[in-house]
Design a protein around this nucleic acid. Structure first.
Length: 415
RNA sequence: GGAGAGGUGGCCGAGCGGUCGAAGGCGUUCGCCUGCUAAGCGAAUAGGGGGUUAAAGCUCCCUCGAGGGUUCAAAUCCCUCCCUCUCCGCCA
């Protein structure tokens, strides 16, 4: 949720932001609606004040005077109810539009509206070309991946991860936690079933409702990322300024319906309905949010570099940002099996978009202010496993475990 | 799943139709006092949204788990839901 005051203070900034995202909106009529709803609210509140005063006089009045006062208060009460209904209806109308608006884009986000418009910031490592097996072929060869049987059990876009690849998964998770905890990230295993307010609060509802698994019988939803649980963890709280930044590293399974992706990335476990992920999440002072964003990106690069996987960093285009993000960096790793760079992390500065919805504030010297929230992938396990096995395959198909993970897995090669 | 008890401000806790956004305590902040510390004295101290203002301020409305209802008037009465605790059952 954007600060509605932007409509009064700098509507042209909102217009510019929406334009960069490629969204059409009649801002003038929205401004008019905002004025109307506030006027109606004031009118209703004035009636309410009158009614309350009338009510107070009742307790002091006697006899006929009292009867008359009650009648008068009754009239005011009716008038107030009518005015309140009008004001509420206008608010609802306004809020429905307002809640659906995406965050104001950061001026340094890349221009454009498509994935291809992302700006490449830098590259690291030497991508290897040549004859590489992709992860599915490697999985079949070594028996650590089974999508056939997963389809039998659960349908398409699922996988069994087996044997050494499971060890590698746990190694990756521990590797990440070991490197994040010294930076103040508190490890968390959060709930993966959440209420709708958590999804609304993080900006996934109403926009991305079709991407979320719902458990209708229980009014619960499966999270697509632990960002949802981690953000909502401090909902309705007023944090101590001295506690900022608050950093968490959440490990959870993530569930995504992947609707609208038919035929896209159907091979192996690159794009599946369920995967595990370590996610970084920060609650920070507004003034430090940009630094924190760079900090999260630095943590991601550190993790990828530690494993020696070639990658590039992308500044995502304004029109390709999620609704809550003002700015987003993706790291794309080199996947020899696909012969191209693909996303393995994503970090977003969501400014106060989520904290306004979730009411997460901190005590400042002159009042309470909304915190800024940021999130970033530490390890998206599935894709990182793929990147590892594809990049570390030898000509004979053997997979070498990178130095940084050997102590965790307890072996040096697969195959 | 069954039975019971509760959810009030940063925390504890009173209030159970009007004078209550709410006693009292703790905590915190500021000031005073005390040659240190502790104690003592005085004052301030919930959140949100409007109006007005250059700002300070003034003012109005909403919020006592959430949402409905009754009433001229609801923290207080009624309904639904959520959550917490205790006991029993089940269970990794």
């Amino acid at each position: 949720m954007i600060d509605p005051r932007i409509l009064r203070s700098e509507p042209e900034a909102l217009a510019a932001s929406l334009q960069r995202r490629g969204i059409e909106l009649d801002i003038d009529s929205l401004i008019a609606l905002d004025v109307r709803r506030r006027n109606e609210r004031v009118a209703a509140e004035e009636l309410r004040a009158e009614q309350k005063n009338a009510g107070k006089s009742i307790s002091q009045a006697q006899g006929h005077e009292r009867d008359a006062a009650i009648a008068r208060a009754g009239e005011l009460s009716e008038a107030y109810k009518t005015a309140l209904a009008t004001a509420d209806a206008l608010d609802a109308e306004f809020n429905e539009i307002w809640a659906s608006l995406p965050n104001v884009v950061d001026e340094t986000a890349a221009d454009g509206t498509e994935e291809e418009d992302a700006e490449e910031l830098r590259r690291w490592g030497e991508p290897e070309d040549g004859d590489f097996l992709d992860h599915l072929e490697l999985g079949e060869k070594h028996g650590f991946l089974d999508v056939q049987r997963a389809a039998k059990v659960s349908g398409s876009r699922f996988g069994f991860i087996l044997g050494p690849l499971v060890r590698l998964e746990f190694a990756l998770v521990n590797y990440a936690m070991d490197r994040l905890e010294p930076h103040g990230f508190v490890p968390v295993v959060p709930p993966v079933l959440v209420r709708d307010h958590a999804l609304f609060g993080t900006g996934f509802f109403p926009g991305d409702r079709d991407q979320v698994y719902a458990l209708a019988d229980d009014d619960l939803y499966l999270v697509g990322t632990s960002e949802v649980s981690l953000a909502a963890m401090h909902a309705d709280e007023i944090l101590d300024k001295d506690d900022l930044p608050l950093r968490y590293a959440g490990f959870s399974t993530c569930f995504r319906r992947e609707s609208g992706t038919y035929g896209k990335d159907t091979r192996g476990i690159f794009r599946v309905h369920q995967f595990d992920k370590v996610e970084m999440f920060s609650f920070v002072h507004p003034d430090t949010a940009r630094d924190e964003h760079d900090f999260l990106l630095a943590r991601e690069e550190e993790l990828v570099q530690g494993l020696g996987i070639p990658y590039r960093v992308m500044n995502i285009a304004a029109g390709d940002l999620g609704s809550s993000a003002a700015k987003k960096y993706d790291i794309e790793a080199w996947f020899p099996g696909q012969g191209r760079y693909r996303e393995i992390t994503s970090t977003s500065n969501t400014t106060d978009y989520q904290s306004r919805r979730l009411k997460i504030r901190f005590r400042d010297d002159d009042g309470n202010r909304l915190v800024y929230t940021l999130n970033g992938t530490a390890i998206a396990v599935g894709r990182w496993l793929i990147a590892l096995v594809e990049n570390y395959q030898e000509p004979d198909g053997t997979i070498v475990i990178p130095e940084a993970l050997r102590d965790y897995v307890g072996f040096e090669t697969i195959g």
